[in-house]
Amino acid sequence: MQDHFHTYLLHLADNALVLGHRNSEWCGHGPILEQDIALTNISLDLIGQARYFYQYAAQRKGAGVTEDSLAYLRNGNEFFNFLLLELPDDDWGFTILRQYVFSQFQHLLYQQLQNSTDQQVVAIAAKALKETAYHVRWSREWVIRLGNGTEESHNRILRSWEKIKDYTGEFFIPAPYETELINSGMAIDPGCIREQWVMEVSSVFEGATIPFHGSAWTQSGGKQGMHTEHLGYILAEMQFMQRAYPGLEW
């Protein structure tokens, strides 16, 4: 029998890990020191959240599964993160806008997960929610600043939205493994937070003078393990040491 709840925990963890990894690429490259630090702090939070979900998944599985084996020894088609989060960084505007749309989603999701029938999911979501509130706040202010900044910053954030918008639909479509969990109350239906997400994002866009237009069509597949070529490069970098030197510690 397939363990859908295990896959769901991996989905929640992989989202946080993959974006945490992408953001960590900015370490030492941020436009100014304070923002470099902000983004790496957000990475730490995300990787910490991923660890809680991996630890829980590993504890449920037993049989030698650990948080490290889940992070370092799975192949690309066993990762269940959103496609948006694995896309390479383009510029600061892209990084900021991706962070904002995802943090806004995550904030609503973690709020809803307080109603899960699984107590550990409730505990992790409650913990993560507090940090995510800071991520939303920080990225939102940057979206507004870039949108209202120079012609250059405005155009770049517009260009970023053109790339990002086709990937946000995936947030709200339940994967087959979620449907059953939604019915039993362990997971929440991501479709039910779409309306509020659109409301929040469009109001921030209005403040940033960026036209908000959604897309009826969406890229999808990440939640089911079908990825872009970019995830492979992330995993190659992240997993190399454990693959080459199994069990290495430092």
Binding site: E34, Q35, I37, A38, N41, I42, L44, D45, E131, Y134, R137, W138
Partner: peptide, 13 residues
């Protein structure tokens, strides 16, 4: 406020 994120996760500058 100079920066919402400071030298550690728990601090602002």
């Amino acid at each position: 406020l100079l920066s919402e994120f400071g030298s550690t996760a728990c601090k602002s500058l």
